[in-house]
């Protein structure tokens, strides 16, 4: 009986990572967790994770288009490479070797913002406690900033549930004109 159990355990343990691999590809299981031995195969996501991104853009159409692109990059998680490339035709990390040095520049919202030049500032924070520091930074930009005087501020939260590997993004958009901040209703860019 003991030998039968040992053989059964052996077969299950040796085959489980293969099943885990399929589940991680199909259902988004984290390869880092649950004994699948897939550490480092994807970016690690820790629990609890709340990512906060604040993007400040001038209020014009071109900037809003870039804003959507940044949103995709920020929310894409490990699917970033495929999603960004498919949706926007940009070369993202992992597919970018043909572009050599260009590859890293599309990875991070900040780098993307620098590339586009139209997203005035993008801030990423580790947690929501940094909101106070964000407020100070925004004061500097909005009070002492250059034209135009109308801006959008998009604050997005990314939450990752490592149980299911679901990534969710929630965005709040504010319109700032002449020093007044107003929350915008209706469809949000993110």
């Amino acid at each position: 009986m003991r030998r039968f159990l040992a053989h059964t355990l052996l077969v299950l343990l040796v085959l489980w990572p293969g099943v885990h691999l399929l589940l991680s590809k199909q259902l988004g299981f984290s390869p880092w967790r649950f004994g699948g031995w897939g550490m480092y195969a994807t970016p690690e996501r820790r629990q609890p994770f709340v990512g906060l991104t604040a993007i400040v853009v001038p209020a014009d159409d071109e900037s809003m288009a870039d804003l959507e692109r940044v949103g995709m990059v920020a929310a894409g998680g490990e699917q970033l490479t495929e999603v960004v490339e498919a949706r926007h035709g940009v070369i993202a990390l992992g597919r970018g070797f043909a572009q050599q040095g260009a590859a890293l520049e599309y990875l991070h919202p900040v780098l993307l913002a620098e590339q586009g030049k139209r997203l005035h500032h993008v801030y990423t924070f580790a947690d929501e406690r940094s909101l106070g520091e964000l407020a100070g930074l925004l004061d500097d930009i909005l009070i002492g900033g250059p034209e135009p005087r109308v801006w959008y501020i998009v604050v997005s939260y990314r939450r990752i549930n490592v149980d299911t590997n679901e990534t969710s993004s929630e965005g709040t958009v504010y319109r700032v004109a002449d020093g007044e901040v107003m929350r915008i209703d209706g469809p949000e860019p993110l």
């Binding site: 990572p17 991680s24 897939g38 195969a41 490990e78």
Partner: peptide, 15 residues
């Protein structure tokens, strides 16, 4: 199998 599957996961996911 830990090493073997670790390698297979890295092949499959690409990162």
């Amino acid at each position: 199998s830990v090493w073997l599957w670790g390698g297979v996961h890295k092949l499959a996911h690409g990162y």
